[in-house]
Design a protein around this nucleic acid. Structure first.
Lengths: 175, 175
DNA sequence: AAAACTGTAACTATAATGGTTACAAAAGTC
DNA sequence: GACTTTTGTAACCATTATAGTTACAGTTTT
């Protein structure tokens, strides 16, 4: 529903900080791990700082670190800090008020949206940054070695991301 | 998370068809209720037809109607028909493989995404088009009358939708 | 044949996100 | 106090998805 990696990046950033403990990270370092521009990171750090999730310092020994115990910060806190909009949106233009369906559909859809969002939040509330760090560790031990053993293994190809509409159009033509 | 009203519109469209029973609806009629262009509707109807949710007919008495009992079509069917992408996306550019966090974060986030999506699907699977029609009916009876009683009531103002980034920026300045 | 539809291509418009450059302000170092 | 490093932030451009629009070929009924 969303072509928006902000949440993924934010989790990545906070996980990095949890990983490196009290050592404040510079936006350049973070940007290198995330593979993006430092300004993109700093923009996001401002939002996370506003929400009280990180603390930043200017100056030559500056950088950012977690504002609290990574066991206390949940993915829901991050989700809310970014003001993610919800799983889907309602009509851009209000539907016709002259149609019995149009006049009330937004109310019903709003209720559905609330139910869905609440389900999402329930899941996110149960995962802390600490959990993410824990889940991270088991992967790291094996992934690198495995690749050396299987020469013909599928190597990480440069991923080409096709737009949704062209994917749909193609599916239709070949159907 | 999404500025995408496709799902809302699709539910609206199928609800209209359930409302009008066997009578096939023309894209013009639907577009009027949804308050958009007929081609936008026809594009979406193609996707819904591919998924087996509606049936369309060309020709002078043509139009579209539901392919099955509205009690059998769930919001999850619609969600899947539109190939909605999931609640959030992973990194656009793959993170650094040289960082212990970067190399594995996508795996972990992928798992989280699956958990979240599954929660969403569970909610959507339990709501049918029929349910939407039912939820619609009670609203219609009261909404119109209420407005006439309170003259100073908040009238539906033209909604100005501010972009997320400017909203965030403003919040920061005034903080 | 004429009329009324859908299906679909080919555009344009709008908006959100991401990327980039630039620079003021803050904080440490010499 | 000048110099250096780094954040905060504005002001752009680039990319992408959705929405809206025009146009027209193909279908079906009359």
């Amino acid at each position: 529903m969303s072509t928006n990696s902000r949440f993924a990046v934010a989790v990545h950033v906070l996980t990095l900080m949890a990983w490196s403990g009290d050592e404040p990270l510079k936006s350049d370092q973070v940007a290198e791990s995330v593979n993006t521009n430092p300004v993109v990171i700093r923009r996001m750090l401002c939002e996370l700082a506003e929400a009280g999730l990180v603390v930043s310092q200017t100056g030559s020994l500056g950088g950012s670190r977690l504002a609290q115990d990574p066991a206390e910060t949940t993915l829901l806190d991050i989700y809310k800090a970014l003001e993610c909009q919800g799983v889907f949106s309602l009509h851009r233009q209000p539907p016709s008020p002259d149609c019995p369906v149009g006049v009330n559909i937004e109310t019903v859809l709003g209720d559905v949206l609330e139910e869905v969002d609440s389900a999402v939040e329930q899941v996110l509330a149960q995962i802390s940054i600490n959990d993410v760090v824990q889940r991270l560790k088991p992967c790291g031990e094996t992934t690198v070695d495995k690749k050396r053993h299987h020469k013909n293994e599928q190597v990480s190809l440069p991923e080409i991301r096709v737009s949704a509409r062209s994917r749909r159009a193609k599916a239709y033509r070949t159907a």
